[in-house]
């Protein structure tokens, strides 16, 4: 057994062989700062570990565990089918209403989860932010990505449901990754804005549940997009989730293809939101530790 005095020295490899020459200058930053992608790459392992932690602890100490991943969309689908489908006689473009809702819920729940998580992420990690250095962007990005695992599980469930209803998805299914990418960018964009605001104004925390609920009704989850009068369609496309949800129905169920102009508007909106949120985030980043 090593004595305490030697068990320390055993691990400390001589430094001389791997002295780095990097020089870091710390000084007050002047205003706007560029996005430092190199830093993000250097810290990709931390990103991975934070994501992994989110996934590991999510269903710990729950009785049914990972089954919650499936229960959430299934229960919501049941409620919607009863109230909107059966009682409300909501049109579903000729598709079985439960399937129609389920394919809408699949992207929506990922979006809602990612948005909600990202918005609260910085405040939840305030211990980390005040005690350790790392590119702060990792925190919201990790919380957005952590939802993808749940999504994959639900995706399999939805696919099985589709096959069970006798629908054979076309090659359009290959666009799903692209749609998920747009979705994640949208969630990150809005999530970054809210997370940054949340550092200073905790009002955000209370506003988020309303925001997501409101937003869901603005998105064709429980109803088809063509229910919206044509005059408002262009405006409707400003909601990036409209294109994503419609895109999912097209990709999985072979529903009518989404309005590509609307999709372009959606993508444009996402790009603007994401760029502005990144700029704002970088601007505020250096004050997080002092303000949070």
């Amino acid at each position: 057994m090593n004595s305490p005095a030697t068990d320390g020295s055993g691990s400390t490899t001589p430094l001389s062989s791997r002295l780095s020459t990097q020089v870091k200058r710390i000084q007050p930053s002047a205003g706007w700062r560029a996005l430092d992608l190199g830093q993000l790459v250097a810290y990709h392992e931390l990103l991975f570990f934070l994501m992994w932690r989110d996934i590991m602890i999510r269903y710990r100490q729950t009785a049914v565990g990972v089954a919650w991943v499936l229960l959430q969309p299934l229960l919501t689908m049941a409620v919607f089918s009863v109230f909107f489908g059966r009682l409300g006689q909501m049109p579903s473009n000729g598709l079985p209403y439960p399937l129609f809702v389920l394919t809408g819920l699949l992207p929506w729940q990922l979006f809602a989860f990612a948005l909600n998580h990202a918005s609260n992420s910085l405040v939840l990690e305030q211990r980390l932010i005040t005690k350790v250095y790392f590119p702060r962007l990792i925190v919201p990005v990790a919380s957005v990505l952590a939802g993808v695992v749940d999504f994959c599980v639900t995706f399999v469930l939805v696919l099985l449901a589709i096959l069970w209803f006798g629908i054979r998805p076309s090659l359009a299914i290959l666009t799903v990754p692209l749609l998920v990418f747009i979705l994640l960018c949208a969630a990150l964009a809005v999530g970054l804005w809210l997370a940054t605001l949340n550092v200073q104004y905790r009002d955000v925390r209370y506003a988020i549940p309303f925001l997501t609920q409101f937003w869901m009704f603005l998105t064709p989850v429980a109803y088809p997009a063509n229910l919206v009068p044509p005059a408002y369609r262009a405006w409707y496309g400003l909601n990036p989730m409209t294109g994503v949800v419609e895109g999912f129905r097209w990709a999985l169920l072979g529903a009518e293809p989404p309005d590509w102009r609307m999709m372009a508007v959606s993508a444009g909106v996402v790009a603007v939101l994401l760029t502005s949120s990144l700029i704002y985030f970088r601007r505020m980043e250096q004050t997080f530790a002092d303000v949070i």
Partner: peptide, 24 residues
């Protein structure tokens, strides 16, 4: 905290030669 890059200085500068590990 400044040397660990957790918060920014208001004035002056610091120069660090090498990888920093901080344990606050």
């Amino acid at each position: 905290k400044i040397l660990s890059q957790i918060t920014e200085p208001t004035k002056g500068w610091a120069e660090i030669h090498g990888r920093v590990g901080s344990l606050l």
